[in-house]
Design a binder for these strands. Structure first.
Length: 929
RNA sequence: GGGCCCAUAGCUCAGUGGUAGAGUGCCUCCUUUGCAAGGAGGAUGCCCUGGGUUCGAAUCCCAGUGGGUCCA
């Protein structure tokens, strides 16, 4: 079926006496030494054959297995590489988490733009796959966190015209050697070569493809050997299983994956993988949750796990169906079996999730509402729910710490702190949500209606309350809840919206032919003057203005990049002068946007605005200092989440799990200024990227990952960052740093706004001026402003109350006869019609006082337009609301209110008296109506 | 990065354009007293900030601030 069939005819298979067969069950093609083998060996075609049957030469722990693998490949010419972070978004922007070892080398290494850290290499890479989250604990073999052990080789075709265009050359090894290594590793671990099955299974993913082989042993897939060698190409000669066409690439990569957990598992033959990989944690959790099985029960559980392992269970839903089947075979009821198994499943999941959290938090992910932080939060909350559900009462931070300890993380205190903070947040959310649900449940219980679906969706989407929690609480109130099957798709449909996509800026063909501009702003970061030749000029429209993009052979102008704005300045020739208003870099070509045209071939003198540049440099160096200070004060997990430098102030966003209060801000400011005062030199260097990563780790890349063999490093005090910006010579040149504000951009991301150098002084002067102005108004010294302001505010509130009281008294006095309003009889009741030019409050008080005396009150005011208040005593037969609408209409407005008290008005104050004169008639008319 | 929700008494929250409320806590008194409690009265509010709409905004609209939450 596959056009790749030829790709699998390996000399190695031939030499070793393998035969190619077709599986009698699924039709897949596979290679084996066993001529009698009928099936491919993988479930469902065959069952697990290693449970209760340890299948290697010894039982290995997770750590021992990892070491066995790495040292085997080390002994076979591979260099051992330290694992990368699980937060893959630290070096690539297309994924959030590391899901395979090859993620470490995409896209820069696999495409040949950057050399690999070693070639060939071996690694055991921690990975997290959230897709499997529902299966964890239930199927006996799924985990969210795992380590992918691998060996990789990066090859480039040897018949290329220009081999130097790629960062590695020639072939290291390819398919035969890969399979040979795999075979040899199996053998070195004591596996029986006769039982190894290599299934042909072409691989496609992320725009690449290639032949691949699944390696099956005793019913379980233990390795995948991928030969990444093709890329998507509509003209390509191979059509792959995703329906797209692919063609061969110049580079080709050996991408293998050996599941550390599975290897450990088969070496022990335990019923589930969890018992093999973290036995101590499982037994701790069992004890903590008070799970104590009798011998009989334990036996039952063991047999059930074994049966489950034999089945083809890929989804948790299949598990539900399989359970009846298993219960049947064991001769117990499904309910009995579930009562035994479900707590165990929770415990397995807790152990796995804690390991996931240890990886995530250990690698510096901070829980938040965005990106990896959100994933961490989800996992944590889920884990907490599982703990509560199964009755594990050990604090979650302790559980995560058990895994962090095993995995050898050094920032364990921070991890625990983050977990505690996050658990507390979750507790608050639950508490608040619980109250909200109670209110809803009570209301719907009174109406005798079930809680409708849209309320459920709202509760989940806006308040994070799971439907099952709603059900639980509602049942206490006897309220029904119906959770539709498609609940989560209903939630998803609320998030439908127009997909915004950015328009690609048009690329000018001519740009591609131009040489990369020689950049001189690094060799002399203080330089402002230079000479250059105009290579090309692009005329274009920008906001209705004609502007020119001038390309020079060399420049001192810094193009916008790395959060640093571009330089400004002028380019002059003997007879022209052009102002540079913006500078951009595209594919190494620097474009100077000017307001005047220059001619191709002109020799120009460039001069950049030195003052502006120096301010930017101070701010840029200051940015490094502030990030470093923040890390020192807040903890090692602090990372830059974005930055923007400016002339007057700059800002950096850092990841942190808590708010930064004023005290902490001051501390950061102090540490930052200490670095300034130490006045150490700021150094730049261009080391080999892998040597730099080796020495400083991925924390180098605070602002993104540059491509290329060598990267530019900036050392500021103890801080080292990959950075393309311009910097001052010594930290003292920054002058001073003033943090002017901290705010929370998103949950888990704090923004620090600061000013450096003269801008810092200006910022301080501005706040001082504000304080001085306030002090002057209050006529006190600046020191006394807070105290005085508080006193004034209290006094102001007190007076407000006093005025209210007085108005009340005045109103009563007026009502008891002192007011002098016009009195008319309306039916059986006396009406008082009066004009008081006062505010609404006073009018109301007076009207109420009159009504309390049994009189109808019609009070008008011309203080702010024309306003009326009408109050009537009970049983007067007059509707106050109607009276007000009538009167208000006469002054061009409207009004209304309840029958016994109404207010209204209009803009036409001149007609107020006229309206009041008509009031007796209006009253009579309303009474008669 | 996007969506949604929330902000009112110390706390938990009602409040549907027209006189700012309840429960709880607080204060005073009474009753009872071993404690718990019970009764009566009272004080509590820049209704987050700033604009707009309106005769009139806690309420509607816009912006900001602070918090929550879901999704990629």
């Amino acid at each position: 079926m596959s056009e790749l069939e030829e790709e699998y005819r390996l000399d190695y298979f031939e030499a070793e006496g393998f035969v190619r067969k077709e599986c009698s069950e699924c039709g897949a093609h596979f290679w084996t030494r066993d001529r009698d083998r009928e099936t491919c060996g993988e479930p469902p075609c065959e069952e697990y054959d290693f449970i209760d049957n340890p299948s290697l030469d010894a039982e290995y722990s997770l750590e021992e297995m990892r070491e066995a693998f790495l040292s085997f490949f080390e002994d076979n010419g591979h260099e051992r590489i330290d694992p990368y972070p699980v937060a893959a978004n630290r070096w690539r922007d297309d994924v959030l988490l590391t899901q395979a070892s090859v993620y470490d080398f995409q896209p820069l290494v696999t495409s040949g733009k950057t050399p690999p850290p070693a070639n060939p290499l071996t690694i055991s890479q921690p990975c997290i796959r959230m897709q499997d989250i529902d299966n964890v604990g239930k199927t006996g073999r799924h985990t969210m966190a795992f380590e992918m052990m691998a060996h990789h080789a990066f090859n480039a075709r040897e018949d290329l015209e220009d081999p130097e265009q790629y960062a590695y050359q020639g072939e290291v090894y390819w398919k035969d050697e890969t399979v040979e290594y795999c075979d040899a590793f199996f053998e070195s671990m004591g596996a029986n070569p006769e039982e190894i099955v290599y299934i042909e299974d072409p691989w496609v993913g992320g725009g690449n493809a290639g032949p691949a082989i699944e390696v099956i042993y005793r019913g379980v897939e233990l390795a995948t050997l991928v030969f990444m060698s093709m890329e998507q190409d509509p003209e390509g000669e191979y059509e792959m299983k995703d329906g797209n066409r692919y063609s061969k690439m110049d580079t080709y990569v050996v991408d293998t994956g050996y599941g550390l957990e599975r290897w450990t598992w088969i070496s022990q033959g335990t019923p589930t993988v969890y018992e093999a990989i973290y036995p101590e944690m499982i037994s701790f959790l069992k004890e903590n949750a008070g799970i104590d099985h009798s011998e009989e029960e334990a036996e039952l559980v063991h047999r059930a796990s074994k049966l489950a392992g034999h089945m083809d269970i890929d989804e948790a839903e299949d598990m539900e169906a399989a359970r009846d089947n298993i219960a049947d075979k064991l001769g117990v009821s499904t309910a009995e079996l579930e009562a035994l198994l479900e707590p165990l499943e929770d415990i397995y999941a807790i152990a796995d999730h804690c390991r996931t959290l240890a990886y995530m938090l250990g690698d510096g992910i901070v829980p938040s509402n965005v990106a990896t932080g959100y994933l961490a939060r989800m996992v944590l909350r889920r884990t907490k729910r599982l703990c509560d559900n199964v009755g594990v009462d050990a604090p979650l931070d302790e559980l995560v710490d058990m895994q962090a300890d095993r995995l050898g993380y050094e920032n364990r205190d921070t991890i625990r702190d983050i977990v505690r903070t996050e658990v507390e947040k979750y507790r608050e959310t639950l508490e608040q949500g619980g109250r909200r649900v109670e209110r809803l449940a009570k209301r719907y219980a009174e109406e005798g209606k079930p809680i409708p679906t849209d309320e459920l969706v709202e509760l989940y989407d806006s308040h994070g309350i799971q439907p099952d929690m709603v059900e639980e609480i509602a049942s206490e109130f006897g309220t029904e809840v119906e959770v539709p099957d498609d609940f989560y798709s209903l939630v998803a449909s609320r998030h439908d919206g127009g997909e915004a996509f950015e328009e690609e800026a048009e690329e000018d063909e001519r740009l591609a032919d131009l040489p990369k501009t020689d950049r001189h702003y690094y060799e002399d970061q203080y330089g402002t003057d230079f000479e250059a030749v105009v290579l090309d000029v692009f005329e274009r429209e920008d906001d209705g203005e004609t502007v020119y993009d001038i390309v020079l052979d060399q420049t001192m102008f810094y193009p916008e990049g790395g959060g640093q704005p571009s330089d400004r300045g002028v380019l002059t020739t003997d007879d022209a002068s052009a102002k540079v208003e913006d500078v951009q870099i595209r594919d190494g070509v620097i474009l100077h946007r000017t307001d005047e045209e220059l001619d191709k071939g002109d020799i120009v003198r460039g001069k950049i605005d030195g003052q502006r540049r120096r301010r930017l440099m101070r701010h840029h160096t200051a940015t490094h200092i502030v990030v470093h200070a923040a890390r020192e004060v807040l903890g090692e997990h602090v990372r830059q989440a974005g930055a923007q430098k400016g002339v007057d102030s700059s800002r950096i966003d850092v990841r942190h799990y808590d708010r930064i209060d004023r005290e902490t801000r001051n501390e950061i400011e102090l540490v930052a200024n200490e670095i300034v005062m130490e006045n150490t030199t700021v150094q730049q260097e261009w080391p080999n990227r892998h040597e730099a990563e080796e020495e400083y780790g991925f924390d180098l890349y605070q602002g993104g990952i540059p491509a290329g063999m060598n990267i530019r490093l900036i050392h500021v005090a103890e801080d080292v960052q990959a950075c393309g910006g311009t910097h001052v010579r010594r930290t003292g040149d920054v002058g001073t740093i003033k943090i002017t504000n901290t705010e929370r951009i998103q949950d888990g991301v704090e923004r620090l706004t600061f000013a450096a150098g003269d801008a810092a002084i200006e910022a301080t002067q501005r706040t001082e001026a504000a304080l001085a102005d306030a002090a002057e108004i209050l006529d006190v010294s600046p020191d006394e402003v807070p105290e005085t302001a508080e006193r004034f505010f209290e006094e102001w509130k007190g007076r407000g109350k006093e005025i209210e009281d007085l108005k009340e008294q005045l109103a009563e006095a007026r009502a008891s006869g002192g007011g002098g309003g016009e009195e008319v009889e309306v039916g059986d009741t006396t009406a008082v019609i009066q004009r008081i030019d006062a505010d609404m409050g006073e009018l109301r008080a007076t009207a109420n006082a009159l009504a309390d005396e049994g009189k109808i009150a019609v009070i008008g005011s011309g203080a702010d337009g024309a306003q009326f208040v009408v109050a009537v005593p009970e049983e007067s037969g007059v509707n106050a609301g109607e009276v007000v609408s009538e009167l208000a209409a006469k002054v061009g407005g409207g009004g209304g209110g309840p029958p016994d008290f109404a207010q209204g008005g209009g803009p036409d104050a001149g007609k107020l008296d006229g309206a009041l004169e008509d009031a007796p008639d209006v009253l009579k008319q309303v009474l008669n109506a």
